[in-house]
């Protein structure tokens, strides 16, 4: 396990640095696609295939295409910029605070972790009976136990789509 985990996390960190450092925007977009794909692999290792699906399709697929479409409208090179001290300090402090925060988190896979305790384990045990034999607990929670939340999520996607259309379509009336 550790032989897969460490290379993936190391590659994630390397890709993140590459995205930040590189000045060729086309290469940077490609690197964000690689980053998403590594993230999807990481989610698969964490036993979350649903999230891995979404990350691979949205992160590595669609958002890369959208970034490339945007790049076709703008320049391919980032303007050289000076290293500014103040933002660097702010980012450094925020990052350090976030890392400090992880010290309080329970160990990975720990049985005492709140995630194993709080949504009562009986959820997992009862779901198959409640759903009349549907085995997937994730879908049961998403679509049935928390169906109302998912309706809200769908409404959010709907609203986001409409908003993007309203903004982007303004100057090409009649074309679409």
């Amino acid at each position: 396990m550790i032989f897969i985990v460490i290379p993936i996390l190391a590659l994630l960190a390397l890709t993140a640095v590459a995205v930040a450092r590189i000045r060729d925007l086309w290469a940077a977009v490609m690197f964000t696609g690689i980053y998403s794909f590594l993230g999807a692999s990481w989610m698969l290792i964490l036993d979350a295939p649903d999230v891995a699906f979404t990350e691979a399709a949205v992160g590595a697929g669609i958002s890369t295409v959208l970034m490339l479409a945007t790049l076709a409208l703008t320049g391919k090179k980032e303007k050289p910029s000076k290293v500014k001290v103040m933002p660097l300090i702010v980012v450094g402090i925020t990052g350090a605070a976030l890392i400090y925060g992880t010290f309080d988190m329970p160990a990975y896979g720990s049985a005492e972790a709140p995630i194993q305790q709080y949504p009562n384990p009986s959820f997992v045990e009862k779901s198959k009976e409640d759903m009349h034999g549907l085995p997937n607990v994730v879908t049961a929670v998403l679509a049935s136990y928390r169906g109302y939340d998912t309706l809200g999520e769908t409404a959010v996607i709907f609203t986001a789509g409409i908003a993007v259309l309203l903004i982007l379509r303004k100057d090409q009336e009649g074309d679409a």
């Binding site: 669609i62 959208l66 479409a69 759903m131 049935s144 169906g147 789509g161 993007v164």
Partner: peptide, 29 residues
């Protein structure tokens, strides 16, 4: 439950598919 989840997921699928396609059209066009 089975039918309910089926219908609800169908609705989610339709909306997500068409939003993604429309955003692509808007960007690429």
């Amino acid at each position: 439950q089975h039918l309910g989840i089926f219908l609800v997921e169908l609705g989610v699928g339709i909306t997500v598919t068409s939003v993604m396609i429309m955003i692509f059209y808007a960007f690429a066009g």
